[in-house]
């Protein structure tokens, strides 16, 4: 193999790797914390971090509020999520194509209270957004609603 050819191949591979990295970084941010009052934390890969406005969220993040806490989140498809005190909200699955507006958004309110204004994903495809509690599945047909999940003492 001639040296010049090898260098060109290497340069191409680097450019490709760079593109993959930037795609991965772009895909990772799915929304942002806009409002955080009282105690709010985000659990990512087993690590808890305090949440302040501007924190960028990723798929599988779990947002928790303390007894005095509340949190407001804007997703990249314009969905608004806001949770009251004592809430645990898991962002299970999120995908949003900014060209076609096709996507998928599934989240789970494990406990607490949540207000939702759905965004472009639900508007584009009525089946593409669900909000769950441990026992209930909500199919969202492009809308504003509130949901609470109160643990039953066993």
């Amino acid at each position: 193999m001639n040296h010049q050819f090898l260098m060109r191949g290497l340069r191409g591979a680097c450019a490709l790797a760079g593109l993959c990295l930037s795609l991965a970084a772009g895909a990772a941010d799915i929304g942002q914390i806009k409002i955080a009052k009282g105690q709010v934390s985000v659990e990512r890969a087993g690590q808890a971090m305090p949440a302040a406005p501007g924190l960028r969220l990723q798929t599988s993040d779990v947002v928790k509020t303390g007894a005095d806490g509340s949190v407001g989140i804007t997703m990249s498809d314009n969905t608004l999520l806001s949770a009251g005190p004592g809430s645990v909200l898991s962002l299970d699955k999120y995908a949003f194509d900014t060209t076609t507006y096709q996507g998928r958004f599934d989240s789970t309110l494990k406990q607490g209270t949540l207000a939702v204004v759905s965004g472009k994903i639900a508007k584009q495809s009525p089946e593409a957004m669900t909000v769950r509690t441990p026992a209930t599945i909500l199919g969202i047909r492009g809308t504003e609603f509130v949901v609470s999940a109160e643990p039953i003492a066993r």
């Binding site: 209930t136 047909r141 492009g142 809308t143 609603f145 109160e150 039953i152």
Partner: peptide, 24 residues
């Protein structure tokens, strides 16, 4: 753990017809 859930549909700002389907 199981939860007891409440879901309420809110009025739309622009009066669009919308829905939430609750399945338990």
């Amino acid at each position: 753990p199981p939860t007891r859930d409440t879901i309420v549909l809110l009025p739309e700002k622009d009066g669009r017809k919308t829905a939430v389907i609750v399945n338990n």
